[in-house]
Amino acid sequence: MEQMHVISLGAGVQSTTMLLMAARGEIEPKPKYAIFADTGWEPLHVYEYLKWLEKEAAKHGVQVIRVSNGNIRDDVYDHLRGDKKRIASMPFFTLDENGEKGMVMRQCTQEYKIAPIHREVRRLLGVGPRGRIPEGAVVMWMGISLDEIERMKPSRKKWMEHRFPLIEKNMDRVACTTWLRRNRYRVPPKSSCIGCPFHDDIAWLELKRNNPEEWMEAVYFDRKIRNLPKLKGQAFLHRSCVPLEEVDLSENQGTLDLFANECEGHCGL
């Protein structure tokens, strides 16, 4: 079986730069496929940019494939109504009756990002769910830049190895945006779910100011998750464990951008 190179596409700055560099022959060998795992709850501007990127990549012989394991927001609502017994948990912040804060175990990246991509790779190889794939048959390109080196992780699959072309090129996020502008490409927006708990206050404030409809989606979602079934305590999107619409986003609350630390190289790249 010929080794297959595939791009894990998050449609953010880093993975977009990596894809376009490969398409233009600046990183070799050029992959035939770039796979975008759609959680169903990305901001509208991400989907708009992705449409352009699909066309641009196709000009250079790279096919962008969208895959999905459902709509993460709708699945939570179905669970709350009792129509869905199990969901992949999101990393909600929790507050118990004693005032202790915690965090829900995160399963969403695995089930809405990683698993659909791996399933599509098997389809492209023509190998079923239980079929054996030779060791090292797939090289998955990950859009992790030099300033995110802590996110580099080896593949857990023997048949897949991870490659980090931006690290190889000594490129950080600034270098990626510089490359995009130098080549007259529009810099893509950050890709992540509208209601991702890993948003920092800057991201929440930007959403509130620039995308009021999506902000209200997140506010409504935050209200609905307050008393999730089988969860001890209340759930919140904001790490302060305050209802999202009540958070003072203009104040420095000592927050960190958890997104980069927790995404495992699949979300928001």
Rank of each mutant, 00 (worst) to 15 (best):
M1F: 11
Q3S: 07
L9K: 00
A11L: 02
V13N: 09
T16K: 05
T16E: 06
A23W: 06
A23K: 11
K30I: 09
K30A: 02
I35S: 02
I35A: 09
T39H: 08
T39K: 05
W41A: 11
W41V: 04
H45P: 00
E48A: 09
E48D: 10
L50T: 02
L50G: 01
K51N: 02
K51A: 12
L53P: 08
K55L: 08
A57G: 10
A57D: 10
A58P: 01
K59N: 11
H60R: 07
V64P: 01
I65Y: 02
I65D: 05
V67M: 05
V67G: 02
S68Y: 06
S68L: 06
N69T: 04
H79C: 12
G82I: 10
K85S: 13
S89T: 09
L95T: 03
E97W: 09
N98G: 14
M103Y: 15
V104Y: 05
T109E: 05
T109K: 09
Q110I: 11
E111P: 04
Y112N: 00
E120P: 00
G126F: 01
G131Q: 01
R132S: 02
R132P: 00
A137W: 00
V139E: 04
I144P: 05
I144Y: 04
S145E: 12
L146T: 01
L146R: 03
D147A: 07
M152Y: 04
K157H: 11
K158T: 13
K158E: 15
W159T: 14
M160W: 05
R163V: 12
K169I: 12
D172Y: 12
A175V: 11
L180N: 13
R182P: 10
R182F: 15
R182V: 07
R186V: 15
S191H: 13
C196G: 15
P197Y: 12
F198V: 07
I202F: 08
R209G: 01
N211Y: 15
I225G: 04
I225D: 04
L231N: 03
A235C: 10
F236K: 10
F236P: 00
S240I: 04
S240C: 08
C241F: 13
V242T: 10
P243C: 03
L244C: 07
L244E: 09
E246P: 00
E246Y: 12
L249A: 11
E251F: 13
N252Y: 03
N252F: 06
L256M: 07
F259R: 01
A260F: 01
N261Q: 08
N261E: 08
E264S: 13
C267L: 05
C267N: 02
L269G: 14
